[in-house]
């Protein structure tokens, strides 16, 4: 490209407008995509101002200032919803996190390539099932007549209706998240492992290192950078906590234990039509979520010299 420009000084002298004109067909090609984003992303972003207005489908919206923001913080349920969101996110993004890394390491330790392939084929699949399907499978497997209670009965353990038990439902969310994504998410780490230069392993072998030493001294250090990347990205999801999963795993018995911000927004906004209040919660969530990512970006850059982008 640079060579070309240097070779024809005429081209370089062309004005920006002339260049844009020459590229007009390219912009025509990308135009539908831009129009799509303006209609279905930019307009909704503009609609977020509803947090400070009273909604009306006919007349202009009436500005009401902080009315809905105050309403959120004075509502008795809000703090417990926030707490649920943070707890569920912590379980899914912090407690589960090391298991995905360990899974990738274990997969790499397998000697039999055929068995490893089998494990990969099976564990990558659930990622492609919808949460509706997964919840359907889990509801059946966890019911009192399902497989899990059958195994528990075999070991003389108590029978629990896990899906309607407040004590277990958050664990069910965490474990089903693992069930769905541990395989697929481990690909990122597994790729990092197989990209470790072979001579490092050879050197370790010559030095007489055993497998545990190899894992600890060679593999784990190679995984630190990808782990940090994933961890920071997860922080961006912290206020989401996985809406599709929670919505499908929820039922009347456990709703108060796993009600998160997004299910709350869905209920008050879409189901009961309190658009302004729902938009206010959404706006708070969006701003706080973006803030979280920015903060972790800065911290990460200070610590490691590497940011999120």
């Amino acid at each position: 490209m640079n060579d070309q420009a240097a070779a024809s000084p005429l081209k370089r002298k062309r004005s920006v407008w002339r260049k844009l004109y020459d590229e007009k067909y390219l912009y025509l090609l990308i135009l539908p995509t831009i129009v799509f984003f303006i209609l279905f992303r930019v307009l909704p972003i503009y609609n977020m101002r509803l947090a400070f207005f009273n909604y009306s489908s006919r007349a202009a919206w009436k500005f009401v200032g902080m009315k809905y923001m105050n309403m959120i913080f004075s509502s008795p349920g809000f703090m417990s919803i926030l707490k649920n969101t943070l707890i569920i996110s912590f379980m899914k993004y912090v407690m589960l996190f090391p298991f995905t890394v360990i899974f990738a390491i274990l997969l790499n330790e397998l000697r039999s390539a055929r068995f490893r392939k089998y494990v990969q084929i099976v564990t990558y699949l659930p990622h492609f099932l919808s949460w509706v399907v997964i919840a359907g499978i889990w509801i059946l497997a966890l019911s009192l007549s399902g497989g899990v209670n059958q195994i528990a009965a075999f070991f003389n353990l108590p029978q629990i209706d896990y899906m309607t038990d407040r004590g277990t439902i958050r664990w069910i969310l965490m474990i089903s998240e693992a069930w769905r994504s541990i395989g697929w998410d481990s690909i990122f780490y597994f790729t990092a492992i197989i990209n470790i230069p072979a001579h490092l392993f050879e050197a370790a072998e010559i030095d007489g290192a055993n497998r545990l030493q190899v894992i600890w001294k060679i593999i784990v250090p190679a995984l630190v950078a990808p782990m940090l990347t994933v961890f920071i990205m997860n922080l961006g999801f912290f206020l989401n906590a996985g809406f599709d999963q929670v919505l499908n795993f929820s039922n009347n018995a456990v709703q108060s234990t796993i009600d998160i911000l997004d299910t709350y927004i869905y209920r008050i906004g879409i189901e009961s039509g309190q658009y302004s209040l729902a938009s206010a919660v959404g706006l708070l969530k969006g701003v706080a979520g973006t803030g979280l990512v920015l903060i972790t970006h800065v911290i990460s850059k200070r610590l490691t010299g590497e940011g999120v982008w």
Partner: peptide, 30 residues
């Protein structure tokens, strides 16, 4: 396309669209 004049603004726009989620109610109203 190499040398596309508006590449940078377009990419910034798209990445912003990816990162920022307006949420379900504003989209519903649109």
């Amino acid at each position: 396309r190499p040398g596309l004049t508006l590449k940078k603004p377009l990419m910034v726009f798209l990445i912003f669209m990816m990162l920022f989620d307006p949420g379900m109610v504003p989209e519903y109203l649109v």
